[in-house]
Structure formats: structure tokens, C-alpha cells
Amino acid sequence: MTIDTLRSETWPDPQTDYEAETLAFCRSWQRGQTEFILHTSGSTGTPKPITLTRAQMRASAQLTGQALGLQAGNKALVCLNSRYVAGVMMLVRGLELGMTLTVQEPSGNPLSDFDPDQAQFDFTAFVPLQLQTILDTTPQKLPILNRMKAILVGGAATSPALEEALQRITAPVFATYGMTETVSHIALRRLNGPAKSDFFTALAGVQLGVDDRGCLHITAAASNFERVQTNDVVEFADSTHFRIVGRADTIINSGGVKVQPEQIEHIIAGILGEYALNQRIMVAGLADQRLGQRLVLLVETPAHEVSTQLQTAVSVAQDAIRQRIGRYAVPKDIGIVPTFVETATGKLDRRATVAAYLSKSAP
């Protein structure tokens, strides 16, 4: 479905319930609706409704347009779920900036039906799994990506393997940082090319700080100039550049030592990539009588046992963790989970995944 946002009188007739919902939002926006109720993703708890104002959403859209050089007449591919903030804000950017929107119901490979020689888009946003699928299974679609002005990747962390694969794309690819409360992203991190960086750069006018836990707080027009406190532990390079260390609510206390699982996962994922292993992983803290919590590496694989190659890679990763972080951060056990649990927006649901593992491993 294609929407020319500058000509609402020629908008298409919806063919599916999803298209009807998407068009209903666009019409509400064009009629000047002043408040919208969206839901958080539920990746760290129960999804909850949040009311966002038109002014907040417009401010966010304009900042993104300025940061990426988007303008009227550009063509955007909308392939994120428009029931959540990431997809909704793709619609708002198109409506506010005068872009033509091609809307697709979310799928694993949003480019599968497009001709790589003919399809022309200037802008899009993916979750990491979508982009990984495109590069792994349909490399012939690469010209579509290369012709874009900017590509956003959000909703979950990008793995070392994906970041390496992104170097094949010549168009700028950015990781996003934000949440429903900040009306999508408030900072971008370049993932490919000579300008790639480990640090996010805040958009213009965004003010950042940390609380006594070292967790980021954000104040911006998109948050209605109210402070939004996160649970993300960060390190600052300066007042507008920061790096994510992990989440305060995922910290594992093992034998009295606090461990940030995301740091461990990053090391393991990088080494798995060196062994051409692309399984998703997660470090969990499971109940232990002696340690309180013991570190366990959960691996997503339909296999019923750990392969020799995976055992070798994990052994190398354990040595690397011991050297880079310390012996207390080394997962001692490996657990198999056939399928990790995800939220409706495609984010890893850590709690539900651990619960699924425990239910299958219980005697």
C-alpha cells in the first residue's frame, strides 16, 4: 500500500485490517487529532498505555528529518508494526515531512517482493532480525539498501556479526536509542562506514544526565520537556555522546559480585561470529543456593544438544571473558532453548525466555 502524504484525496483503499488501522491513524493525524495512545513494547515488564501529544510527535519527526536530511518527496518504506511507536513514528515522519510511504505489514524480510533494479526508497527502519535476514538470505536486494539516504535499526541491540555484515551497505546505517516515553529515538549511532562509532549522538536539543545508579535520564521536546528516567546504565564521552553498558534491571548478583550480562553477551556473540555461528544467546542469572545467582549461557537452537563447534567457541569465549572482565563473569553452564520468547515488537523477552528454559529443564 502506497500513501502519497501530500495528496490525501488519492489515498488507497485498504485491503487488510492492518492497512485499515494504518490509514485510520493517518486520517486522524491529518484531521489534527491532538493526543494518541500507544503501548510500550513490554520487553522489561507488562506493556502499558502511554498518551503522547501531537506536539511531542511532531518535534520528534522534525528532529529526525533534520538529522538525516529527509525532505518532501522522499520515499519511505514502513515495515515496522504501526501499532507501536517505532512504526507510528515512521508514519508521522512521512506525514510531517511530505514523504511518500510504502506500507507493508511486518515480516521477516520486508524486501522479498521488491525488484532490486527498480525499487527506490530513500529511508526506512528495521529491527535487527529483519536486516540480518535480508543480508543473509537475499543479498541480491543490496542495491535497494545502497540507494537509500538513511537506514535505521532499532528495537534491540545489533550483534557483532550483524555490524560486520552492515559494512557491505554503502548507505548510512544508524542504530537508534529511544523508547515510547521519548517518542521513538533521541540519539543515533553510526554502524557502518568510516564514521561508525561505539557511541550514540544525541539529537539537537536533547539534554542527558544520569542518576545515582549511573542510569540515563533524558529531557527533550519529544518528552514534553519532562525528565524521562531510564534503567539503562551508560558511559559518557561528553555531554551529547554516550555508550550503553547494560540495564540496571538485568544486573546479576553472583556471589556478591554484580555482573552486567550485556557485556558478557557482546563478547560471546563476537566469538561465535568468528566460528560462523549465528545463534542468538542470552546470559541469565539462575537461582543458586551458594552464589545466590549462577551465570548460565542460554543458546537459541532447535538442536537437543550442544554441538562440538559451539562447545569450542564457548570455551574460547569463556577465556576471553575471564581476561577482559574477570572470572566471576564467566558462565559455567550452557542451556538450550529451542526458541527465545519475543515481545510483540520483536524484542527479546528475557524473563519469559528464562521461564521457558526452566519449565523444560525441570524434572
Rank of each mutant, 00 (worst) to 15 (best):
L277E: 00
M57S: 04
Q15P: 01
G45Y: 13
P363C: 09
I251D: 08
R247D: 13
L111V: 03
M90A: 11
L63G: 12
A284Y: 00
L129Q: 10
G108R: 06
Y84F: 15
T170H: 15
L129E: 03
N224F: 10
S8I: 04
G270W: 01
Q263M: 14
L295M: 06
M89T: 06
I281F: 04
M282G: 01
F199N: 07
L131E: 02
T46D: 15
N74F: 05
L188W: 06
P261A: 03
R322E: 13
H217K: 14
L358W: 01
S159W: 02
S254N: 08
L310H: 02
V296C: 12
G94L: 04
M179A: 05
G193A: 06
S8H: 09
A157Y: 14
R93S: 13
I264A: 01
Y275V: 04
V314D: 00
K258F: 10
I334Q: 00
I264M: 02
T10G: 04
T345I: 11
I218E: 07
L152P: 03
Y84S: 10
F174I: 07
F121A: 08
L272D: 07
T22W: 04
L52S: 05
A125Y: 09
L101H: 03
E19M: 11
G209H: 07
A221N: 13
C215I: 10
P302E: 11
L297P: 02
K347V: 04
K258V: 02
E35F: 11
A237K: 13
F174A: 08
P14N: 04
L277R: 00
T353R: 02
K258C: 01
G246E: 11
M89E: 06
D17V: 13
V234C: 07
V183W: 06
L142Y: 04
D122Q: 14
Q167E: 11
G65T: 09
F340W: 03
W29H: 05
L203F: 13
N231D: 05
K75M: 12
L162F: 14
V153C: 15
A313S: 12
V259A: 01
A55V: 12
V173N: 05
T44F: 03
E163V: 11
A284Q: 00
P128H: 10
V183F: 06
L97P: 07
N192Y: 04
K258M: 08
A76E: 06
L131K: 02
L6E: 10
A67D: 09
